[in-house]
Design a protein around this nucleic acid. Structure first.
Lengths: 275, 275
DNA sequence: CTAAAAATGTGATTTTTTGAAAATTTCTGA
DNA sequence: TCAGAAATTTTCAAAAAATCACATTTTTAG
């Protein structure tokens, strides 16, 4: 049985972030998930190589990929597997996988601060996406976002209300940016904003790598009564290009490690929480 | 007994944040709560692993899981548990499954009419979604849509440009409706529109079951130079509630079987194509 | 406090999954 | 094209996990 994907679904293409299966086996499932991840990165993998890396026999890998191939998730080739050409994936989903555990931890912490019925602005970003996923047990949320990923995660459950900003969708991350998105977001006033950030610099404050992203983040800052920034430790004193805001524009920084002293001095220890 | 959820309640679906239990024992409850928490973080857990971590026997964990699974809170898999995927998926993905083969055929036909570089309006609807999927080999498309599914399918590849209408997302189908979405769509002028339709009536023309949907469809009609409607044979002379448009508003009907003569007479045989 | 009910643990039995070896097919390079 | 190598399929035994039945402990209720 192939468990990575639910039994009779049709797959547009992609590795679902929410893995599921009707029945089947755990290890198999995890293995198949791992194989998909490797494929996302490497496009094709050899059987023996996979067997070695996952520490199982070639046979097991063959059985796995046979199942996966049945669903069109991968294509068997002699000696290995590859992604079907229809499965060319947004690089963004790959980004979701890097530092997953850390980001999930931070997301859990963020989610724990949020209660049922709250109103939220959530931007697009891999950590933000995990926050959305971690909010799965909250009810009656009102969420404004420019991210299709966040929107889809939250809209289908628990009587949440989700408002999606329109505009041109960036292929990169399936999110909208630009004036339409910004103007849309400016209509709202929420209790909180959850922001992912690309870089935190002691000198410059919060930075981003992309102008459109930075503009959107800047636009939503004033719309929320309280701003939470989520950023893992790799973001500290890393180069950024566009300034988003100063330290005093945010209320809370959620991260996984205490930042360098220079940054702590600017934000204030009491405005930093470690997951 | 499963205590994570109160005893005799009916669950719409999901883990409530306010855990409760009428009776039962504390340890069980705590264990099951703990399992849910771990699952939120790790998406799947092994039985023996859980047993070790919670310091009880495998059998106990199995019994817990069996109870939890009865309520659909988790799914059993060989060797462990995982969060159900179906619960997290939008209900409309399920709808995608009904009549899949037929819809795919119609979608293939629709896609074959479209060339690289074209500009398209695509609404939300299960057949429309299949059209988007069938367009995977086209390049440089410009697509305007109110459907997150369509948007995500098309945005990540082949240098397509995708414009997503903003607005409140309907939980039902992860698409946007209402004035914001309509006004957004009205900004565009495209070569074609692809419309899914809920019902085709010889007397009334094209109908839909939902006011918001119908309004959106009506709004995009004048924005496209040519309108293609996709509808499988089950839609013929089926009841609808809201009128979308007359027969003369569309240029082509794509379907899988020749409609009843009464409908052919209205549309004209030359404007009907059978997949 | 005590008896009944429920929950848990233990070991035997059955089912499922995995790994290893043999048989078969496919690929590669002369 | 053919031989040898590599990969795949098949088969079967061992290992892991699930299920079942029963003894023991804990919880509940009178």
């Amino acid at each position: 049985m192939f468990h990575f994907f639910p039994k009779h679904a049709t797959y547009s293409k992609k590795m679902p972030s929410n893995v599921g299966c009707q029945r089947g086996n755990m290890k198999q499932n995890k293995r198949q998930f791992a194989i998909m991840n490797m494929l996302q990165v490497e496009r094709s993998c050899g059987i023996v190589d996979l067997a070695k890396r996952l520490d199982v026999s070639d046979e097991t890998i063959r059985r796995d990929i046979k199942e996966m191939a049945k669903f069109g998730a991968v294509e068997k080739i002699h000696g290995g597997v590859m992604l079907p050409n229809t499965a060319l994936e947004a690089p963004f989903l790959r980004r979701l996988e890097t530092q997953r555990t850390i980001k999930q931890k931070i997301a859990e912490l963020a989610a724990s601060l949020i209660v049922d019925g709250e109103t939220l602005l959530i931007d697009n970003g891999s950590t933000s996406c995990y926050v959305a996923k971690a909010l799965s047990s909250r009810r009656d949320l009102t969420v404004v976002t420019n991210s299709t990923e966040v929107a889809r995660d939250l809209c289908a459950r628990n009587s949440n209300k989700v408002f999606m900003a329109g505009g041109e969708i960036r292929a990169d991350d399936s999110a909208t940016y630009g004036p339409t998105a910004v103007n849309f977001a400016k209509q709202f006033a929420t209790e909180r904003a959850i922001l992912s950030i690309a870089a935190v610099s002691a000198d410059q404050g919060f930075l981003d790598c992309d102008l459109g992203e930075a503009e959107f983040k800047r636009a939503i800052l004033p719309q929320a009564a309280s701003v939470i920034v989520v950023a893992d430790h790799t973001k500290f004193n890393r180069p950024g290009v566009v300034k988003v805001c100063d330290f005093d524009a945010i209320d809370l920084l959620l991260t996984d490690q205490l930042p360098p002293q220079s940054i702590i001095d600017k934000i204030g220890r009491d405005r930093i929480m470690i997951a």
